[in-house]
Amino acid sequence: MEDTAFQSYETERAREFKDYILEVDGVYVSFGGVKALQNVGFSVYTGEIFSIIGPNGAGKTSMLNVISGFYKASSGTIKFDGNDRTTASPERVASMGFARTFQNIALFKGMSTLDNIMTGRIVKVKNNFLKEALYFPARNQEVAQREFVERIIDFLEIQSIRKTPVGKLPYGLQKRVELGRALAMEPKILLLDEPMAGMNLEEKEDMARFVLDVNDEFGTTVVLIEHDMGVVMDISDHVVVLDHGERIAYGVPDEVRTNKDVIRAYLGEQ
């Protein structure tokens, strides 16, 4: 075949990572007698897509809740940008640059898409109560925040539902709005709890595309929990696998895929 101008297209871009943004070490969480997490540790590089996977009840969401400050680890440390933040409250964690979505969508159903995403901007609003009561400062603030939100709407291609109350939207779109709200916080780390659960193939592919684009365009580090192995292996840089609250594998997708323990956890004993 003749050479064309676009031969170089097929070379995969290599991804190199330097610093850790999040270090989880020896974390234990238990509810009464139930040990949800036992001695779990892993590290997330700045700028990567990192996945936490595992079968039902493996402790994935518990792990995410620990990272986002909803649960307190009974022992172990969590470092963010090298600083210990194990005991920080959810609000504190949010203002540090963590944003998350929920497994069972937590949006304001009666509010429009635009307003829902706008709520994500609250952490970025600098005005105080007094300033908000005055016309010009309030207006300028509103314009600036709205512009940012419009960029997100454009990015997620949800212009057509800008004014629609989210309660009326189909599930797949609600998930996208929730992602939009998380993005509005301009997070350093985006925590996604099963962003593709309950979606059909097309919606899953769209969502995977958006996750990659977020990572690509904004350089946001993404930590996601997922049930669907196929999608995870395609888009993740590193994967940690949990089962019964314990780490059973950790590494790049290809290593994890062939790991005997992982196969056993997913498929049962042979």
């Binding site: 003749e2 064309t4 101008a5 676009f6 871009r13 690509d216 365009e217």
Partner: peptide, 20 residues
């Protein structure tokens, strides 16, 4: 592009996702 040898230049409007 492999089967269109004459195509030389592609220009695009929206850069999203094309950074790399």
């Amino acid at each position: 592009s492999r089967s269109c040898p004459k195509l030389e230049y592609i220009f695009f409007d929206d850069p999203r996702g094309l950074r790399h």
